[in-house]
């Protein structure tokens, strides 16, 4: 029987994979993709809790929509930043992104 715990554990596993990608990847685009995985895990949690705990309303789905909006804005600005830095540095390796380091 699939209950809330199964969905939450799936979300946890996805979140952990995202954490690993964010911490270990050298490519900035790879880090952004891992962040998207983490946001998806959070959305799964919201919608699962909405269905199994507070199913009289759709508040969880509403929050998931706002997370999707913020994630879309984040990925657009993030990729534009990567493009702008790539034009200067000719690299997307995060080790080369030390403009703000003194």
């Amino acid at each position: 029987m699939i209950d809330l715990t199964a969905y939450l554990l799936l979300g946890t596993v996805l979140f952990g994979i995202g954490v690993y990608g964010v911490l270990s990847k050298r490519n900035a685009v790879g880090v952004l993709m891992s962040v998207e995985l983490m946001l998806n895990a959070v959305n799964i949690n919201f919608i699962a809790v909405n269905k199994f705990v507070a199913s009289s309303q759709v508040i969880g789905q509403l929050f998931a929509i706002f997370i999707i909006v913020v994630a879309a804005a984040e990925v657009a600005v993030g990729l534009a930043l990567i493009l702008a830095i790539f034009r200067q540095k000719k690299s997307v390796d995060l080790n080369d992104f030390n403009l703000l380091k003194w």
Binding site: V13, G16, I17, V19, Y20, V22, L23
Partner: peptide, 10 residues
């Protein structure tokens, strides 16, 4: 280190 931290978080 990333693998360890991700494992601990999970």
């Amino acid at each position: 280190w990333g693998g360890l931290i991700a494992l601990l978080v999970t």
